[in-house]
């Protein structure tokens, strides 16, 4: 048994040795907001934060998260809430499937950069594929969230 701390709550899991975090979170714990897209760190759908840093959970071992704080899309933070509001304002999602990962990647950007440039946004977000093609809106919403966050 291992203990994983996700969004401030402890979960006991009995994960097979080589199992990546993605599957422990989805199949063993049952939090399905974190998505499977490629399994090889190419698409960003499975993005989560460990102690505030974004990782691709499909390619991160359970052992790397023991004793640390995991944040998933089911969680919250000042950056995530600002982003959610901006996402609403801009009707960003189409199918929505990639958006958990997009929001998590964007949250790290906002946590670490108060005034991201276009280039900063491109760099932070280019690991996240959106097959529906909502990039223009994501970029606009991130800029808006930066402003929203300053207001609170």
């Amino acid at each position: 048994m291992q203990t994983l701390t996700i969004n401030g709550q402890d979960y006991q899991v009995d994960a097979p040795e080589s199992m990546p975090l993605l599957w422990a979170i989805r199949d063993l714990i049952g939090l399905t907001g974190t998505k499977f897209g490629c399994g090889v760190a190419q698409c960003g759908a499975c993005s989560i934060m460990i102690d505030g840093a974004v990782v691709r959970s499909c390619s991160t071992m359970v052992s790397q998260a023991i004793g640390k704080n995991i944040t998933t899309i089911e969680g919250t933070s000042a950056s995530l809430e600002a982003l959610r509001q901006a996402w609403r304002n801009n009707s960003v999602p189409q199918c929505g499937y990639c958006q958990s990962g997009q929001l998590i990647s964007a949250a790290e950007l906002l946590d670490t950069n108060n005034n991201p440039t276009d280039e900063d946004i491109d760099n932070a977000m280019s690991g996240n594929i959106c097959r529906c093609g909502t990039y223009v809106r994501i970029k606009k919403a991130i800029k808006e969230a930066v402003e929203l966050k300053k207001q609170v």
Binding site: L31, T32, K35, I73, R84, W87, R88, S91, P93, G96
Partner: peptide
């Protein structure tokens, strides 16, 4: 407000895989 917006934003939308 899109009907599914809040679900999308909180990882609550139920896709086939979920």
């Amino acid at each position: 407000r899109g009907i599914d917006m809040e679900d999308f934003l909180h990882g609550k939308a139920n896709y086939g895989l979920d």
